[in-house]
């Protein structure tokens, strides 16, 4: 049976999170959504996703902090970040740490789909 990739969505904004979930499912992937970074880290019942899309500005823990925590824990899977406040410094840090993409909000759904496909392809290699 063909493996259906699972995409994790981490965003504190309900509207964005639910719309992304719908979009990802319409693209034929499985979606799991989390309202915060700690919530994602606390989910021990499922395996790592095939890809993660995370917001940068979140209360409790930011997207790049989440990235660092995952790397430190040895959990490596393709990551795509999005932000409404793109800054050059954050972009550099996140990309240097191995992120697949750094997108400005609002991001075009086509762009998201393209980066997601590329990330999943990379993850399978």
């Amino acid at each position: 049976m063909q493996h259906i990739p699972t995409v994790a969505i981490v965003d504190d904004d309900d509207g964005v999170r639910s719309s992304l979930t719908s979009l990802i499912r319409s693209l034929g992937y499985k979606a799991r959504s989390y309202g915060s970074a700690p919530q994602f880290l606390a989910d021990r019942e499922t395996d790592d996703p095939d890809c993660m899309i995370a917001d940068i500005q979140m209360p409790e823990m930011t997207g790049d902090e989440l990235q660092a925590a995952l790397i430190a824990a040895g959990r490596r899977f393709p990551m795509i970040f999005m932000t409404a406040f793109p800054t050059a410094i954050t972009r550099e840090r996140v990309m240097a740490a191995g992120a697949c993409a750094f997108l400005d909000k609002p991001a075009e759904p086509d762009t998201i789909a393209r980066h997601l496909a590329a990330a999943l392809a990379r993850g399978r290699d």
């Binding site: 904004d13 509207g15 639910s18 719309s19 719908s22 979009l23 409404a84 609002p106 075009e108 086509d110």
Partner: peptide, 9 residues
């Protein structure tokens, strides 16, 4: 972003 993404979905 939510509007556009929902619309696209």
């Amino acid at each position: 972003m939510a509007v556009v993404t929902n619309g696209e979905a």
